[in-house]
């Protein structure tokens, strides 16, 4: 446990500004992706809200900062009020949190945890977005491609499995991974 805590702290320390920038820009593309999701109605809660989660493992501080930024920019989606909250991976997988329309990964996960999260998001037809490089290739639905310009990055296989309905516009301007 102590080891995990130490490793988490050290990861935070070495997280460079490039990764931070990816998280901030990724947050904006995440919001665009949420707007492009036409199947959002299934995720409206009984009290008429849409939930958006930021999942973290240990770094609550960063997750909270990102959640704060997102909630200030995304108060409504398709005229439906949005609630942004942070949740630990453990709580999310143990179904202790409320189900969300989209999940933003706010912490770098190892492969087994990431695979568990991908499996759960696909099963619940949720948008899973990771700003971290290489996560889309590991099965996360969306991320960002940073080349000569910043574009959304979509895993087409995960998109097909999750049966999400994303606007063709969004798909068209995205970089595609594992496209048939």
């Amino acid at each position: 446990m102590l080891f995990m805590l130490l490793s988490s702290i050290s990861f935070s320390l070495i997280a460079d500004s490039f990764t931070d920038r990816r998280a901030v820009v990724g947050l904006k593309l995440f919001r665009t992706l949420l707007v492009a999701d036409t199947g959002y109605q299934h995720h409206i809660t009984p009290d008429g809200r849409l939930n958006v989660s930021l999942i973290y493992l240990h770094d609550l501080k960063t997750a909270s900062q990102l959640a704060e930024q997102l909630s200030s920019e995304l108060t409504q989606l398709h005229d439906i009020p949005v609630t942004v909250f942070t949740v630990t991976l453990q709580d999310y997988l143990n179904k202790k949190s409320q189900r969300s329309l989209g999940i933003f990964i706010a912490d770098k996960f190892d492969l087994p945890r990431l695979q568990q999260l991908v499996k759960s998001s696909v099963a619940h037809k949720q948008i899973l977005f990771s700003p971290y490089e290489g996560d889309v290739e590991k099965g996360v639905l969306a991320g960002l491609s940073v080349e000569s310009r910043v574009r959304p990055y979509l895993n087409m296989q995960t998109l097909k499995k999750s049966q999400l309905k994303i606007k063709p516009f969004f798909i068209k301007v995205s970089k595609k991974y594992a496209a048939e």
Binding site: L29, R31, T32, V35, A36, R149, R151, K167, F169, K172
Partner: peptide, 15 residues
């Protein structure tokens, strides 16, 4: 090249 045109709220307006 295809470029996404977005508004300030990051709504995708056009390509």
């Amino acid at each position: 090249t295809e470029v996404a045109l977005m508004d300030e709220d990051y709504n995708l307006l056009a390509i």
